[in-house]
């Protein structure tokens, strides 16, 4: 048994788990945050992406104990004061989701992608950046549109703030 302490969506949480517990299972089962999904066993679908210390990680690829001490943001922590994050809003406006299962991981990856590349994103770089997230429903067309439109909006907001 291991003790894990994390800051999750701004709140400090701790709990005991088996040494072998993956971060994704800790988040889903111990913390009850079921927005983070499990879609594969081989670290390839991206349904489980969360942010760890500000960077996107596949939470099925690390142990909960490895993450101890870090700050985690899950999909549940993205919206602020009831307002959806611009990436969430862009997914809705552009119909970037259907069944919604890949969506949390897709959104978390997209936020990180925009944070890293900002306005320099193109269709090609978005597609390359989402390569580790599988969606079976949308054919990616509207996801790519959503990410580009959120990037443009966040870029404009950033410029306005500067």
């Amino acid at each position: 048994m291991a003790k894990v302490t994390l800051t999750v969506n701004g709140r400090t949480v701790s709990g005991d788990c088996e040494d072998r517990t993956l971060l994704v299972h800790f988040i889903r089962e111990k913390l009850g945050l079921t927005g983070t999904h499990v879609g594969c066993d081989t670290n390839q679908c991206g349904a489980c992406v969360v942010h760890m210390d500000g960077k996107s990680v596949k939470s099925c690829s690390i142990l909960a104990v490895q993450a101890s001490g870090s700050s985690i943001t899950t999909i549940e922590g993205l919206a602020q004061n009831g307002e959806m994050h611009p990436v969430q809003a862009a997914f809705k406006d552009n119909h970037g989701l259907q069944c919604g299962f890949c969506t949390p991981g897709m959104v978390m990856t997209a936020v990180d992608l925009i944070n890293r590349h900002g306005n320099s994103l193109t269709e090609e770089t978005v597609r390359a950046g989402l390569e580790g997230n599988i969606c079976r429903c949308t054919g990616y067309h509207n996801i790519v549109k959503a990410v580009l439109s959120a990037a443009a909006e966040m870029g404009t907001a950033r410029q306005a703030a500067e």
């Binding site: 945050l33 079921t34 927005g35 983070t36 999904h37 899950t74 999909i75 549940e76 993205l78 919206a79 959806m84 969430q88 997914f91 809705k92 406006d93 119909h95 989701l97 069944c99 919604g100 299962f101 969506t103 949390p104 959104v107």
Partner: peptide, 15 residues
């Protein structure tokens, strides 16, 4: 735009 999107986008889908 879809009524169901908000719950999926905020991690509140119930599978």
């Amino acid at each position: 735009t879809r009524k169901e999107d908000k719950r999926f986008l905020t991690g509140k889908g119930r599978y």
